[in-house]
Write a protein that binds this DNA or RNA. Structure first.
Length: 825
RNA sequence: GCCCGGGUGGUGGAAUGGUAGACACGGAGGCCUCAAAAGCCUCUGCUCGUAAGGGCAUGCGGGUUCGAGUCCCGCCCCGGGUACCA
């Protein structure tokens, strides 16, 4: 009579059922409360790995939980299908990237399907789909028209081993190529940029109200790197013919302490002011710096000994009128601020080190606090000294006063400097979204008009390891006519960074059906912002910052509704899975494929394991024991299976003692456990404490078994089992769907989330903990409404307590009734 | 260096300032069986003790409190981010 728990039979069947039922196909006119749950769409690298399982389990759980709470949940999925691996594979195997990618998508979809996650499958999108390319390109042309996309000369990463340009993220921290290990060099090329810096302030300010992990917000803040300060113009002594050198500082209050000025070796007008006797020395210094790699230049031990040379020129401190030498040094970055800084050794440690090394004077302009014992620069607060008209002011007052002085003198101004640079989007690659621009000798750079979109890359190209995009060598593609004047023109052959595709896909999901626009504004209004976004911490900066920028820019361009200014209201970053100490990933070749588990214990057991193993945000190490834990999850599901189907072999060895027990007592206990579990588990779902939810549901299962064995009534057991299935349903959808249908009929995921009966949460009796001097000495059962007098009397009469007390009278009695009493001697 | 996380049994991990170690994994013993598998039951932080019972325990050292894994101060170790950003 018994049917064994067989996930292999149940799981595919329910996966088909859910698709047929269309429970998770939602539309913007749905009367229910609308919400949007999204996992970062995957790069299709082949079958799903454990990181995907974890990510999409969290997503699916949220979708199903919210649906059971009465919401209409938008749950789409797609594929981030442009990218370098497909093109590298093409160079190696001569298989077209599209063929390669489509095959990987099939594999990934197949294995994600086996996980049992539910989506509105009508909304699937792929970055490399011509329809998607068309609207990516449309957005690009809109950015061009708005001046948000522009061309400029820029250095790019060039790998001599791979003979190709690399994206920043493919260059490791030590300056080598992640693939070949060669040292990456710089090349200057004309490139397309997005003007993300226009949005620096908004990106910073509007970060605050987002319900994101604080560390992600901190990373974005640091990345934007807003510094408030001043630009100061320092004239070059005796050279009225030259423009002054402009320096940026956050500390204009220290200006009287300027004892030198220093510029980067790449400073553009350097040789305008280097004097002839120093020319050779400066020239060889700059050449030497240029020959060193970025890593050498920035390495810590070399950084300690700041290297530089004098230029022979002098500058005038606009505050004191003092003449100070101008140096060139490699500790000044050409790429930040103006590439020139004022040397203030008293208050800046780097300047202090340099001044010490080159025998430059050091002026302290902030009074050191009495407790200050440091040897070196002091950057803290204090009263100004040695600072002329600033003397006696605090640092903050002096900043304002100094700025006022500069403005009056015409030698400076307030300035906010950002670390954030414009986003370089050009990629010299084939497998990406072509940049829809045309170069016409007569009209200049012309965006390709909408009716000619999409611009698609031709298929008949050669994939060679030359570093040049196959598009550039394809005459049919390159040669075109100007959309303006119809004269001969040349196409842009670069493609877009794949982060462009992922910067608006969540908008297209709101309406992937429109063919005359990227998406319908009303649909975007209906669903955006994403209520719950889920993904890895590795996207903390780039993807999340770019997507925020796109949302704001598109909103300003009136393509996205004006009220939508942020894409992701809540963000959850899941922990990563490690094997032997390093992140489990395809490129490291240390994957443990989920397919073996799907084939064996089933998707539900694997999902349950990922939920149970620990807090979702924590990393975990996949070890030898992991398989045993997964087995344990399978055993638990089997236990639930046998319990609900009331299979007699569940209870061998347990005597049914129905006659011996007051069944109403057993019933009451079980009902209380059931309702307390509803409370605990519901709160756990809301706090993402899924591991604790699983534990509570295991406890409930154990309690039901015990209650059945001790004679609980069918009604009470049935209520407890229903509650168990409902609360497990978002976690392990297949087994719960099957058991619910067998037990009650109907679809468990269409049921409402259970609500605890307040009456069942109240206790008549509880355990009173008895402490003496804060140490546990005894516990007693008491009525919850016990009076203070009675509690004290009962506690004092306890043998253990009276033995400790002897004749002594407690100095104090701390009462936290009915849970705790502490006698202080 | 700086900025975040985090150190709790053999293992993964629970604990609104109030019974530390829930729940699992592993281990030990038992029931069932001709036997095994599966299942079920009991025990399982360390330590002293035959036991009853006691002592010690949340990285280390202090502090606040009737009471600290939890709050405060100072260290140590591990993981991640960042790297001369003026």
């Amino acid at each position: 009579m018994s049917i064994a728990y067989d996930p292999q039979e149940i799981e595919p069947r329910w996966q088909r059922r859910w698709e047929e039922l269309g429970l998770y196909q939602v539309d913007s006119d749905d009367p229910r409360l609308k919400s949007y749950v999204l996992c970062m769409y995957p790069y299709p690298s082949g079958p799903a790995h454990q990181g995907h399982v974890r990510n999409y389990t969290f997503g699916d759980l949220n979708v199903r939980y919210r649906t059971m709470n009465g919401e209409a949940v938008l749950s789409p999925i797609g594929f981030d299908s442009f990218g370098l691996p497909a093109e590298n594979a093409a160079i190696k195997t001569q298989i077209h990237p599209r063929t390669f990618t489509d095959a990987r998508i099939v594999e990934l979809k197949e294995s994600l399907g086996r996980l049992g996650a539910v989506y509105d499958t009508r909304r699937e999108i792929k970055s490399h789909d011509p329809e998607y390319i068309k609207w990516s390109q449309f957005i690009f042309t809109k950015f061009m028209e708005a001046g948000l996309a522009y061309r400029a000369n820029a250095p790019v990463n060039w790998c001599p081993g791979c003979q190709t340009v690399l994206a920043n993220e493919q260059v490791l921290a030590d300056g080598t190529c992640e693939r070949s290990g060669d040292l990456v060099t710089r090349r200057n090329l004309e490139q397309w940029f997005f003007k993300i810096t226009d949005y620096a302030d908004q990106l910073l300010d509007e970060l605050e109200p987002l319900e994101w992990p604080e560390r992600v917000k901190v990373m974005q803040r640091n990345w934007i790197g807003r510094s408030v300060g001043a630009e100061i113009e320092v004239a070059i002594s005796g050279r009225d013919d030259l423009d002054p050198i402009t320096v940026f500082t956050t500390r204009p209050d220290t200006s009287f302490g300027i004892t030198y000025v220093v510029v980067a070796p790449e400073y553009p007008r350097l040789f305008d002011f280097v004097t002839s006797e120093y020319r050779e020395e400066v020239r060889s210094f700059c050449a030497e710096v240029a020959s060193r790699s970025d890593i050498e230049r920035q390495s810590t031990e070399m950084g300690k000994a700041k290297r530089g040379v004098a230029t022979g020129a002098y500058a005038v401190n606009p505050f004191s009128g003092a003449s100070v030498p101008i140096y060139v040094a490699d500790y000044v970055l050409a790429t930040y601020g103006t590439g020139a800084v004022m040397g203030v050794p008293g208050e800046d440690q780097r300047d202090f080190d340099f001044a010490k090394a080159y025998g430059l004077p050091i002026i302290e302009t902030t009074e050191r606090p009495e407790s200050y014992v440091g040897d070196g620069a002091y950057g803290g607060p204090g009263v100004k000294v040695n600072s002329g008209f600033l003397d006696g002011l605090t640092v903050d007052e002096a900043k304002a006063k100094a700025l006022e002085f500069l403005v009056d003198l015409g030698a400076g101004r307030a300035k906010i400097q950002y670390r954030l640079r414009d986003w370089l989007v050009s990629r010299q690659r084939y497998w990406g979204c072509p940049i829809p621009a045309v170069y016409c000798e007569a009209c200049g750079i012309v965006p390709v008009p909408l009716e000619q979109l999409p611009v698609l890359a031709p298929d008949d190209v050669e994939f060679l390891p030359t570093g040049e995009s196959p598009l550039a060598r394809n005459a049919n593609f390159v040669n075109t006519t100007c959309p303006h004047c119809s004269g001969p023109a040349r196409r842009e052959t670069d493609t877009m960074d794949t982060f462009v595709d992922s910067s608006w896909y969540f908008l297209r999901f709101c309406d992937p059906f429109s063919t005359d626009k990227p998406f319908n504004k009303d649909d975007v209004s209906a669903w955006m912002p994403v209520d719950q976004y889920i993904g890895g911490i590795e996207h903390a900066i780039l993807h999340l910052l770019y997507a925020r920028f796109f949302t704001k820019a598109l909103s300003d361009l009136e393509i996205v509704p004006s009220g939508v200014r942020e894409p992701f209201k809540r963000l959850f970053t899941q922990g990563m899975i490690r094997l032997d100490g390093s992140k489990m990933s395809k490129s490291k070749g240390n994957l443990i494929a989920p397919s073996g588990y799907f084939d064996g214990v089933g998707a539900d057991a694997l999902r349950l394991f990922h939920l149970f193993v620990g807090p979702p945000g924590d990393d975990f190490d996949w070890t030898k024991q992991t398989d045993e834990m997964i087995e344990g999850c399978y055993r638990f599901l089997s236990r639930v299976w046998r319990l609900v189907l009331n299979q007699s072999e569940s209870f061998p060895g347990v005597a049914i003692t129905k006659d011996l027990v007051d069944s109403t007592e057993v019933d009451l206990e079980l009902r209380k456990t059931t309702h307390r579990t509803i409370e605990k588990v519901t709160s756990g779902y809301q706090r993402w404490a899924y591991n604790s939810c699983v534990a509570s549901l295991m406890e409930l299962t154990n309690a039901i078994y015990k209650a059945v064995a001790t004679g609980a009534s069918n009604e009470t057991v049935s209520e407890a089992e229903d509650t168990l299935l409902l609360m497990l349903a978002p976690m392990v959808p297949h087994i719960t769907a099957e058991l619910w249908e067998k037990k009650n009929g109907g679809i468990v995921h269409s049921e409402s989330w259970p609500v605890a009966d307040p009456e069942m949460l109240e206790d008549l009796k509880t355990t009173l903990v008895v402490q003496v001097n804060g140490k546990l000495r005894d516990k007693i059962e008491v009525l919850t409404d016990i009076s203070e007098e009675e509690a004290v009397a009962r506690v004092r009469s306890l043998p253990k307590i009276s033995a400790i007390l002897g004749d002594e009278e407690p100095a104090k009695i701390v009462l936290r009734l009915p849970r705790l009493i502490n006698l202080v001697l």
